[in-house]
Simulated scan of single mutants.
Amino acid sequence: MEFTSREDIDVPIEQAFEMISDFEQFERAALRRGAEVSRMDDLSRPGVGARWDVGFTFRGKARAMQLEVTNFERPNEIQLKAVAQGINADIKFELVALSRSRTRLNVWSGLKANTLSARLLVQSLKLARGTLTNRLDKRITALGRDMEDRYSKMA
């Protein structure tokens, strides 16, 4: 099962990549939404090998997920691998320069179920695909607006 979203933002690609690779900001955002986040590596800079253990509630059940950066190509791409209770997910953030001051953010996520209970969960997600896609689009749009606001304060 795949989800995709795209957003054009008025931020140069280098600054957009710096913002998208500011993992501490995303950790704080997850904590504000009620997730439990633990950094599991000791890297001083963002890059391949950054890992987190994340606990959260989804559809009324406590879930646990391990998240790891698997590809880090400045300034174009960050790939993550997530493993959560029988579901493997690959997540890719891709940045494409549209002009000197405009960047396209493409987000792709692919889910694969490895157990029967995970297959049932993925099947229920397929039934709610439209709603989940709309929620992802809204989150990516909000992320883009936040990045534009942060960039305008820097400039």
Rank of each mutant, 00 (worst) to 15 (best):
F93T: 00
A118H: 07
W52Y: 11
K61H: 13
T115C: 08
A29F: 04
A82M: 05
A118R: 05
A16L: 08
T115K: 11
Q25W: 13
K153L: 15
S124H: 08
A30N: 14
R45H: 04
E36T: 12
F23L: 14
N88P: 03
D149E: 11
N114R: 10
F26A: 13
E18M: 04
K61T: 11
G144E: 02
F56I: 08
M1H: 05
A84N: 07
A142E: 03
A62V: 11
G144L: 03
R119C: 06
D137M: 07
Q25F: 14
K81Y: 06
D41I: 02
W52S: 03
Q79A: 08
W52N: 00
T131C: 00
M40V: 10
E68P: 02
N106T: 10
I9A: 11
S38C: 07
I78S: 00
F26W: 09
M154N: 11
K138S: 07
A84I: 03
Q15D: 14
D53C: 10
A113D: 02
G47N: 08
S152R: 15
L80F: 06
N134Q: 13
T115E: 05
V54H: 01
I13A: 06
V54Y: 00
E24G: 09
D53W: 14
L121M: 10
L105F: 12
I20P: 06
A62P: 00
F17V: 07
E18V: 04
G55E: 01
V37N: 03
F23D: 02
A29G: 09
V83H: 03
F58K: 12
V83K: 12
V11K: 10
A82W: 04
M65L: 14
N106Y: 10
D149T: 01
N76R: 14
T115I: 08
E36V: 08
A89T: 04
R145E: 15
V48I: 12
M19C: 05
A142R: 04
